[in-house]
């Protein structure tokens, strides 16, 4: 059983973080960043060609984490592989000691750096969960018997501030029916909306980890509001970032906002998922401030 599964199943409050591999082969410094905070984090997600940008792979990075004594969560999107390749990579992941899997649809290729690529989307996130669950039961999606079945701890994502929220809650319920045992959410900035989301999904009885992205600048907040679906940085927070330019630039404002958000939501969820986006060195201060 993975440490992540053990901790969430035991009802402990869990902290995960995230690595976005580089475009190129210089992966070592990314692993070093993770190493520096590994005592404070249960597992590290590794993103899968995030934002549809071609990069170093998730599967290989996950294995490198294991070799350095860390536990990975393999993110798998449906954009780049058909059902044969997805199932094969799931089997390979298990063979490499990777059991935490986060199933996502994936950003459209038009958002990335190879805009003319053919998007696959042969399966969607729900169907990928179904496929992973079937593999665990010793069969593939076509019903063929496997020589040895993998064991996974399956997760999925949800956007708590989506408008309208109902279709996303219906889809979340389907993801649970398909095998999802934990959820990591899109970045949370509005604790009130997050609590409302938790209220509407408490009947699902599934582990939910709130997503935290450190605000680096006013520009970043405005960019996310305009371009990242389901992320809404409220105007008050943007004002707060504007107030003391030096403090914001040093990261102190972003750290304070993250601590406040975590403190507001931590009694309503089972953990937090930190997406540092290059600001790994700020994580210890955030975790200290939030008493985690």
């Amino acid at each position: 059983m993975t440490k992540l599964k053990e901790a969430l199943m035991a009802g402990r409050f869990v902290v995960t973080s995230e690595i976005g591999p580089p475009k190129g082969v210089n992966i070592d410094e990314y692993i070093d960043h993770a190493q520096a905070i590994k005592e404070r984090v249960t597992a590290f997600n590794v993103t899968d060609l995030q934002s549809a940008v071609m990069r170093f792979g998730s599967l290989a990075t996950c294995r490198l984490l294991i070799e350095r004594g860390m536990e990975p969560v393999l993110q798998m999107t449906c954009r780049d592989r058909n059902r044969l390749a997805l199932q094969s990579d799931l089997l390979s992941a298990y063979g490499l000691g990777i059991e935490n899997i986060l199933c996502l649809t994936g950003d459209h290729q038009k958002l990335g750096d190879h805009q003319g690529a053919k998007g696959v989307f042969d399966l969607d996130s729900v169907q990928l969960l179904v496929a992973a669950k079937k593999l665990q039961e010793g069969k593939d999606l076509a019903g063929n018997e496997l020589e040895g079945a993998p064991e996974f701890f399956l997760g999925a994502v949800v956007t708590p501030e989506a408008e309208p929220l109902e279709p996303h809650i219906i889809k979340m319920e389907k993801k649970i029916a398909a095998g999802a045992q934990f959820f990591q959410t899109q970045a949370v900035y509005d604790a009130q909306k997050f609590k409302e989301f938790i209220k509407q999904t408490s009947r699902f009885n599934v582990a939910i980890m709130g997503g935290i992205v450190i605000l680096k600048s006013v520009g970043m907040a405005r960019f996310m509001n305009a371009n990242v679906a389901g992320v809404n940085v409220p105007e008050e927070l943007i004002e707060e970032l504007k107030k003391d330019k030096e403090k914001t630039k040093s990261g102190q404002t972003g750290v304070e906002i993250a601590i406040r958000t975590i403190n507001e939501i931590k009694d309503y969820c089972q953990g937090i998922h930190l997406m540092p986006l290059g600001w790994e060195d700020k994580l210890p201060a955030i975790l200290d401030g939030a008493g985690l």
Binding site: D124, S125, V126, Q127, K171, K174, A229, G230
Partner: peptide
């Protein structure tokens, strides 16, 4: 749906529009 999804919307729609093109309606919405 730009991703031809069969099980509901992805997380990419903003104000009812597709992540691929802000002029395009989200089919799942």
């Amino acid at each position: 749906c730009a991703k031809e999804l069969l099980n509901g919307p992805c997380g990419g729609a903003e104000d009812g529009k597709c992540e691929v093109d802000p002029e395009r309606d989200c089919g799942w919405l």
